[in-house]
């Protein structure tokens, strides 16, 4: 049997539970209807401020996501390296040293230009 099959069982059980529970809750707590006020977005009881809700967002979030992808790929490369590290010994240290040194340059640049400041 494929060792990943039980994960599929787990996924099916979890999804069935989530969908089932939500449907049940929807059945028990049927919407009783209401006025405009009741269904308005909640902003501390104040009338929702006029304007676009899904505003444009600071470019900062995009930068964080982009840097995250790059570092995530770096970390992914570290896993096979760590697994065979005892076979590679000093050689492995040098190989990964070069790889990380180049990325550290980028990290230092990112830090220097202030991309890590949250202002």
């Amino acid at each position: 049997m494929n060792p990943y099959l039980p994960i599929l069982f787990m996924l099916i059980i979890a999804t069935a539970f989530a969908v089932g529970a939500l449907s049940l809750a929807m059945f028990i707590g049927r919407p009783k209807g209401g006025n405009e006020r009741k269904l308005a977005p909640y902003e501390c009881g104040i009338e929702p401020v006029v304007g676009e809700v899904r505003e444009r967002f600071p470019v900062k979030f995009y930068l964080v996501a982009m840097l995250f992808i790059l570092f995530d790929i770096e970390v992914i490369f570290l896993y096979p390296w760590a697994v065979v590290f005892r076979q590679l010994q000093v050689f492995g240290l040098i190989e990964m040293g070069i790889f990380l040194a180049i990325l550290l340059l980028g990290y230092m640049y990112v830090w220097r230009v202030g991309a890590l400041e949250w202002q």
Binding site: L24, A25, G29, R30, P31, L39, P41
Partner: peptide, 18 residues
């Protein structure tokens, strides 16, 4: 929580909201 009324606020994206 199970018995709470199922309020769907105005303007939500229903598919993603559920």
């Amino acid at each position: 929580l199970m018995a709470k009324e199922n309020i769907i606020p105005t303007g939500v994206d229903k598919l993603v909201y559920y």
